[in-house]
Design a protein around this nucleic acid. Structure first.
Length: 257
DNA sequence: ATGACACGCCGAGCGTGA
């Protein structure tokens, strides 16, 4: 069964509602994984999504972080956050099974600054997720892990290598944490189709970064073996960036045959 | 570049993002 999945950090679903609905109407993906919804579940604008025929699955809180998985088929299984205690300090993980595929929709902690306590939290967060996903990946079920990873994997994924060296989103510790998470057989669908450098998914609002091509590739789609083989195309969609009041992230499409 | 820009927050600057 073919699958068209999109991941998009929308930087507030309410501030971006018109953009998101326009996008949904235009592309009709099977699954839309949103991050940074910045709204508690009872105030999420579910109705317009339901009017488009989608099921809305939420894990949010007031004002910051938050994830939502919008899907044509209703999930057969839903887990919010880590599956083992203690609870995460923010809503960042929505783990659903949709049409037989387990989909982890992630908003990875930013890390804030290397000398802040948010940085070790980011690294520990990856270790917890790795332990959880390793228990799943071994099973027969195919897995997609997608979302805003807040890590640029390698030199091709940053606009200024010198400036990014040893800085947040591009440290050896973060690269190790990401490698650990992926070591159970998750592979980068974008890199299946392109070795090109400078293909970014995030551009700072400041300093005309988008116009200058100053960005990072931090929004990713990873898949296990069978699904990775079925990955036919990945697209960083620049069109919504030209709309009024855009998100600082592009939506990333992933098609599976 | 301690910069910029944008979000939500019981309402004005501030924390946060990347």
């Amino acid at each position: 069964m073919p699958l068209h999945l999109v991941t998009w950090n929308v930087n507030s679903v309410r501030a971006r509602l018109d953009n998101v609905l326009t996008f949904l109407d235009e592309h009709e993906p099977d699954v839309l994984c949103l991050q940074e919804t910045k709204v508690e579940d009872r105030l999420f604008p579910r109705v317009p999504f339901m009017d488009y025929g989608y099921t809305v699955t939420l894990h949010g809180t007031k004002g910051y972080a938050g994830v939502a998985t919008i899907s044509k088929s209703a999930p057969s299984e839903i887990h919010c956050g880590f599956r083992t205690a203690p609870e995460d300090r923010a809503p960042r993980i929505l783990n659903t099974v949709i049409d037989g595929v387990r989909i982890y929709n992630l908003y990875v902690p930013n890390g804030t600054a290397l000398d802040s306590d948010a940085f070790p939290y980011k690294l520990e967060w990856f270790q917890r997720l790795e332990a959880e996903i390793k228990a799943t990946c071994g099973a027969a079920q195919e897995v997609i892990v997608t979302g805003d990873f807040n890590i640029a994997p390698d030199a091709r994924d940053v606009w200024d290598l010198e400036a990014m060296k040893d800085s947040l989103h591009f440290t050896a510790e973060e690269h190790e944490a990401l490698a650990g998470l992926l070591s159970c057989g998750l592979r980068d669908c974008f890199r299946k189709h392109s070795e090109e450098a400078g293909q970014f998914t995030w551009f700072d609002y400041r300093n005309a970064a988008f116009q200058r091509g100053h960005g990072l590739r931090i929004d990713h789609v990873y898949a296990t073996g069978g699904l990775y083989e079925r990955s036919s195309r990945v697209l960083h969609d620049a069109e919504p960036r030209s709309w009024e009041s855009p998100s600082d992230h592009l939506p990333v499409h992933a098609w599976f045959d």
